[in-house]
Amino acid sequence: MSGARLGPTARGKRSGIRPFHSSWQAKLLAIVVAAYAVYALGQLEFSAERFVKGLDNGARFLARMFPPSYRNGDQIVTGFVESMQIAVLATFFGVMLSLPIAVLGARNLMPAWATWPARLIVTLCRAFNPVIVAIVFIKAVGFGALAGVLALIVASVGFVGKLFMEAIEEISMKQIEAVRATGAPFLSVVTYGVLPQVIGRLVGFCTYQLDANLRNSTMVGIVGAGGIGAALFAGFQRFEYDFVLAILITIIAVVLLGEFASNYVKRIFHV
């Protein structure tokens, strides 16, 4: 009964207080973003007419792609074998480099003098698209697969290094504390306290990165860093669109295969 008497009083006191508060800053931000989108559309001279014309071109281009042609099948095979090698090598060395960098960069394990340089390396590795990095390496070591491998190692360190660093920062410090309390040296704290807590996610990151490197390795070839990309680019330039489609279909098949392979690897490691 007393509750019924208290009810209106309590409600009366709270009138004017809204349970969900939206700030004016958030509203302002939304308006600014919308306004800029409209402005940018005008600047780039997009028009419905141009878009329709473009669709028309696209249709003709697609028509010339069919049926896909495998007349240069051996070119596709050698290109893909090289792409695959680039991807696997880059993933392997990229992950090997990422492990120590991530441990050094984890703020829950290391003091600031170690985390800053490690984080800087990872950020620099992520700063540029692999294609730009590949161009730099082509200038340094010449055309070919080596430039592709180096470019994708950089990309892998940027990606796996960052994710792995974050995974290490989320581990339970209680388990670390217990390993430390036994008088274990730092490296043993890492192998017995840190790695068991992140190994599952690390396997996930590696398979994902292998997948990404497989796709990226087809791309770095376009600028001359080896792999199937070179054949793809040549096909475009010679207007052999049916050959291009054959390559594109093969890329899709290989990426799908990579997906199955990574699922299989994850099952082996129970993650």
Binding site: Q175, G183, Q197
Partner: peptide, 20 residues
């Protein structure tokens, strides 16, 4: 570390390494 080796510690939440 050499002193810690000689001191055993048991924790409230066991602090075992779960995945080992």
């Amino acid at each position: 570390r050499e002193v810690r080796r000689r001191i055993g510690m048991v924790f409230q939440e066991y602090n075992l390494v779960e995945r080992l």
